[in-house]
Design a binder for these strands. Sequence first.
DNA 1: CGCGTTTGACCGGCGC
DNA 2: GCGCCGGTCAAACGCG
Length: 316
Amino acid sequence: MSEEFNRFYYHQTFTDDDQLRNTSGGAAIFPHSGDNTFTFSTDSSVNGLQMFDPTSYVTFTDFLHGSADYNSFKDGENPAVEAVYGGEIPATPNSLGSSSASEAAEDNEYLNKGKKKKKMAEDGEESSKKEVKAKKKKEKKQREPRFVFMTKSEVDHLDDGYRWRKYGQKAVKNSPYPRSYYRCTTEKCPVKKRLERSFIDPSIVITTYEGQHNHNEPAARRGDMAGMFAPPSMLVPPLPQLQENQSFPPELLVQIPHQHLYSYNGGSTSNLYHQPQTLIQHQQQFHQFTDHGLLQDIIPPAFPNSSIETFTFFSN
DNA sequence: CGCGTTTGACCGGCGC
DNA sequence: GCGCCGGTCAAACGCG
């Protein structure tokens, strides 16, 4: 366990700077001057385990899956909740999050983007170019929700039950470890994820999900058992599963639900969720999939009412 | 042959 | 305007 990770910094972009000022209980939020970001810092431990904050107020399942009504958060009614979009962790020399990649959700645009570009270059259609530009400017404000979690693993690409196609790899500045870009291979599914190793602790894999799956069950794959763990009726994607070639002991990685939201703002839930229905929705979602009997083995009874937030714990 | 990866090129955003 | 950087594209390639 590296010392650096004992303190966890959470960068988050807020659209409403009135939010999250009221902090206590071991967490602090420092507004940055000159921009509208905050650094969230917390030292926490549970039962002697170092806790790594996945930095999202939206649950793992919310992000991975379309079952969560997160769109209702984005309609501007609740600026505080909007803060969950575009969270960043400076676990690599350059922060994970970038505000740019956000158009994928619309009409599977990513599949056509390249062709569009080429066609425009061929035709020289200035008008359409401007239209696209204007459209992009509009879209820029819409940010795909992101969910970040860290996993201690020697394997870069953890099996999360979905099929992914790698579409790029980039060197991370000031880091010896590259960042890989993946897309869900299911047709018209806009979900992307990035994988990279922490330059601070190379044993840690940082996974960033962006967008939500628009299909209920993970695509069937050849040669694995993912489908067996995810019946069609299951509204929640399987949590990352250990692969055969994953050599670290399973006890190193424990995923538990997070005491949703509360610890971040000193127990003042109203800062993050103005509307009580929102919390109720989350709890209903939780019960919805606990009813499937699929989570009991994963979620310790100590966290009966929280959504799966995929905290990753490390013990040393 | 189909599917997934690799990798150099390209693009847009952003800071200076 | 320029350069840097993150993200994406797509042809080439590898593999089962």
